[in-house]
Design a protein around this nucleic acid. Structure first.
Length: 478
RNA sequence: CCGGGUGUGGCGAAGUUUGGUAUCGCGCUUGAAUGGGGUUCAAGAGGCCGCUAGUUCGAAUCUAGUCACUCGGACCA
């Protein structure tokens, strides 16, 4: 008898979404808490997801000409202070090293919250001529921000990320880089993680400290809150001037280069959980799942079953799938529930009856649909099924995004829509920060982005009544 | 950082009001049976009761401090 709910340990998301999220993180063995607030342990299964993200994304970066580097983890205070807006933004959440061994340091060192300053110091040394440009660097590392509240994947004090830092001869080139990287992030989210995104620009209030412009991809979670999944910043020559980075151009004139930076973090994993997960646990997009196919033998004590299951698993591995066989003596039901909880996209069951009929049973994680597949077709059919899972996840997430994007024409209406439905509320906007503050005060929403895909909803800003400059998305964000 | 809640074997809890032998379920180990959705039986192992002080003949229980988790708010990727 199949019960609707197979996994009892995970709180239903309708009952308590935050608890559901924490349950999934722990029960799917992604993460563990450490003894320090906000410092999390990435367990093998959770880290493997990050490794897969890294591998695929890193290849995309390299296609654009980016090179990987590694910068120091400590930033001298004097260096951090060179760019005024930047230091004002990050100083409140910096952690400091003040002792070296048993001696107090002359100057304290900040544990990097982000590495713009370090890259700039280095760029100053390695950029002299237009021939040295562009410089396109990326580093995979961890950064530290002394957050007051923390949650697994969504807000860590120490988190893993990549930060790209590039320098270009012209503003146009730098702007193109900013745009290119945002598109790489957006395509990655959609094509690899099956997470539809909204692409747009941040307002001045929400942009990165020290940037001229910040571009973002915003995703919508199951609870209709927004998640900023990646950002790409255009700096102009602000940091170059602050750090005195110059080059000699083709006309033999000294000029300041134009800069960008861009990043995504392990927060993406939080996004995956809250975009695809369900009440039975995690659901992983096939392209980054550490185990894409779990082979479960049925009645494995019976003659020949284990051997056949092993052979089947080996064939899947040989065909390039990340497949695994569970030959433990746990019951079939336990195994089914276990791998559902861990979000394995495809389960292949093989028992005595199947062997007799020359078939196996494939079960999709996203909708539990079963198909019986002739054994000679498993490699081919696995690809079909995995693609179907990916497409199914994307379609469902896209529907969630579309169904929960509303249009408002007054502040009251925006507030009401947020209270009743949540999600993204789109309105026109005059461009004034005062109206953003008003929206926050009245409806509890911050601006998410000014989407590149603009629509004309009204002539005026519904908050202040002044002429509208742009359409903007509002929401409650993680 | 402000306000509420919670810390008891790996997990979930009872016990705390009224101080007096450390409890239960799940999991774990071993053995046996079972096997198409968390199967069953038997025998075992495992706990400085978050931490530090204090009160007391005696503290999981009372007091103070501290750390962590969690929910809401502010802040932030």
């Amino acid at each position: 008898m199949a019960k609707e709910k197979k996994v009892e340990q995970i709180t239903d998301m309708e009952v308590d979404f935050a608890q559901w999220f924490t349950d999934v993180c722990k029960k799917a063995e992604l993460i563990d808490y450490s003894s320090i607030k906000g410092m999390f342990i990435y367990r093998p299964y959770g880290y493997a997801i990050w490794e897969n993200i890294q591998k695929l994304m890193d290849a995309e970066f390299k296609k654009t000409g980016a090179e990987n580097v590694y910068m120091p983890m400590l930033i001298p205070e004097s260096l951090l202070q060179k760019e005024k807006d930047h230091v004002e933004g990050f100083a409140p959440e910096c952690a400091w090293v003040t002792m070296g061994g048993s001696e107090k340091l002359e100057e304290r060192y900040c544990i990097r919250p982000t590495s713009e300053t370090l890259f700039c110091e280095h760029f100053r040394n390695v950029i002299q001529s237009h021939r040295d440009l562009p410089k396109m660097y990326n580093q995979w590392c961890s950064v530290l921000r002394w957050e007051k509240t923390s949650r697994p994947f969504l807000r860590h004090r120490e988190f893993l990320w990549q930060e790209g830092h590039t320098m270009h001869a012209t503003a146009e080139e730098a702007k193109a880089e900013t745009e290119q990287m945002l598109n790489i992030y957006a395509d990655f989210c959609e094509n690899v993680l099956a997470m539809p995104v909204t692409r747009g620009q941040k307002t001045d209030k929400e942009k990165f400290n020290g940037a001229e412009a910040t571009y973002t991809i915003e995703c919508m979670m199951h609870d209709r809150k927004a998640l900023q999944a990646g950002t790409s910043h255009y700096f102009g020559d602000g940091f170059a001037k602050a750090f005195d980075i110059t080059f000699t151009n083709k006309e033999n004139q000294r000029a300041y280069p134009h800069q960008t930076s861009w990043g995504v973090s392990t927060r993406l994993i939080g996004g995956i959980i809250m975009t695809h997960g369900d009440n039975n646990g995690l659901v992983l997009p096939p392209k980054i799942a550490p185990v894409q196919i779990i082979v479960v033998p049925v009645a494995q004590h019976k003659e020949g079953v284990l051997e056949a299951a092993n052979a089947l698993c080996d064939r899947l591995k040989a065909a390039g799938y990340r497949a695994k066989l569970d030959d433990s003596d746990n019951s079939l039901g336990w195994k089914c529930a276990q791998y559902e909880m861990k979000g394995v996209p495809l389960r292949v069951e093989l028992g005595p009856k199947d062997i007799e009929n020359g078939q196996c049973c494939m079960v999709r994680r996203d909708n539990r649909e079963k198909v019986f597949v002739a054994l000679e077709d498993v490699e081919k059919e696995a690809a079909v099924q995995l693609q179907a899972v990916h497409d199914g996840l994307y379609a469902k997430a896209l529907k969630n995004l579309q169904d929960n994007t509303y249009e408002a024409h007054s502040l009251e209406e925006a507030k009401q829509l947020q209270e009743e439905h949540g999600g993204f509320i789109k309105t026109m906007w005059c461009g004034e920060e005062a109206c953003e503050l008003k929206m926050k005060e009245v409806a509890g929403m911050s601006s998410r982005c000014m989407p590149f895909m603009q629509e004309h909803l009204d002539d005026v800003c519904p908050i202040c009544g002044k002429p509208a400059k742009t359409m903007i998305y509002w929401g409650i964000a993680y």
